[in-house]
Simulated assay, not measured.
Amino acid sequence: MEDLLRPIYQERASHANTLGIILLEKHKPENPATDNFDVMLFIIVKEDQPTNSFKHYELESGKIAGLKIVHVDQVNEWIQLGTNRRVLDWVMNGKILFERNEYLSQLKQSLFDFPLKDRKKRIGLEFAKLIKRFRDGKELFEAGHLLDAYNYMVHALHHLARLSVIDHGFHPEITVWHQVKKIEPEIYKLYQELVESEETLAKKLELLFLASEFLVNTNTKIGSLHLIEVMEEKEAWSIQELMVHREIRDYSVDLEALVEFLIERKVIAVITEKTKGQGILHRNYSSHKLSTK
């Protein structure tokens, strides 16, 4: 298979902007790692203008091949935010056909190392999403919208699972529940109860919210660490300042729910200041440690 694709990848390897080329082959009838192509080439480039390109080929043997050319900035974003976990599989398990200046070898090593700074941000992102989904799910449950509450809680548990995997120093894989079953069986059991229990949906959700609330509270310290470390840069922050901060903006969509949760847990303090309007105050925020100095 590799021989048939050699003209394609050798032509790309000759380009100065090509950083690495990875080959992935399908070894099972259904293999999501290759997007169900028989073989796939994943090429990382550093073009002047970021651009992604996708091509499909049919080989004389009847096999189908896919080609993905992706800009290095996009790959870095997927890895840093965990928004395309399949890329981790490609980099970690694919066959390196070409790399410039050991780019792919170094990238693979950084994924194995998973530096603490990167883990903190990923945990903060997953925790923010967890809080938003959990609180929205609880509101829907209390309003009697059980199916919608169920959907939110499935997502909340996924974020809790990924948070746990990251906290243990690993990147969440596509098969995250396989990882969690070994790392945090308590979280796995919650998910199993939600999808397999024969209790009524209302009863399952009621029990799940009780158990999940304990796990959410248990993870508050580690989940809020990234945000709190940013907030310790100065005394008080407006919500706008936090949302546009380079370290926080990647989870700004869930930030307001996270801030309110942390205020309730006395991790963040509210600091008010006068406005021109009578009886109206600006609401700013401070880490509780700074606010009590």
Score class of each variant (00 low, 15 high):
M231W: 02
D118G: 01
L5N: 04
R133C: 03
L281F: 15
A128N: 05
L4Q: 13
R162G: 00
E102F: 14
L104H: 04
I8G: 03
Q49F: 14
T51M: 12
L104D: 02
T83G: 03
D38I: 00
L125Q: 07
S53I: 12
L41W: 08
T83L: 11
V216L: 13
I280G: 02
K95I: 06
E139D: 13
N52Y: 00
L194N: 01
E184D: 12
L41Q: 07
K95T: 13
K132L: 02
K117Y: 08
V176Q: 07
I22H: 02
K68E: 13
E25Y: 06
L208C: 07
S105P: 07
E193A: 06
V216G: 01
G94L: 01
Y103P: 04
A149C: 08
L258E: 02
V91G: 03
P50Q: 01
E30V: 12
L215N: 01
L104S: 05
T175A: 13
Y285M: 07
N84M: 12
T220N: 09
K120R: 14
M1N: 06
M243Y: 00
S287W: 07
T218H: 14
K289D: 10
K234V: 13
E58D: 11
T292E: 09
S291L: 01
Q49W: 09
E196D: 12
K293A: 14
R283A: 13
F42L: 06
T220M: 07
L215T: 00
H145M: 10
S14K: 14
V72T: 09
F141C: 05
K46S: 14
A33S: 12
G223N: 07
A269M: 03
L24V: 03
I248V: 15
N36L: 04
I131S: 05
L140V: 03
K26C: 04
N284K: 15
Q179H: 08
I239R: 12
Y103M: 04
K189A: 14
L208H: 03
E99Q: 15
L130F: 11
M231Y: 05
F114N: 10
R122Y: 09
I239T: 09
S53D: 02
H56P: 00
K117L: 09
D48V: 04
F141V: 03
S14P: 07
I174D: 11
V70E: 10
E213K: 08
N76H: 10
E173T: 10
E264G: 09
I271Y: 10
I268R: 05
T220L: 11
S197M: 08
R135I: 02
A257V: 00
S286D: 06
D89S: 11
E11T: 09
W237I: 10
W177M: 11
N101I: 00
Y191M: 12
L5R: 05
A16Y: 05
I174K: 09
R12L: 15
L81H: 03
Q49N: 12
Y188K: 05
Q192M: 12
D118A: 14
E58R: 14
V75K: 01
E60P: 01
R283S: 10
A161H: 04
L207E: 12
R86I: 07
E260Q: 13
I263Q: 03
D148P: 00
G82N: 02
L23K: 08
Q192G: 02
I69K: 09
G82H: 05
E139F: 07
K28V: 12
I222N: 02
L160E: 02
T200R: 11
T292R: 11
Q109P: 00
L157T: 01
E142V: 06
A16K: 07
W90G: 05
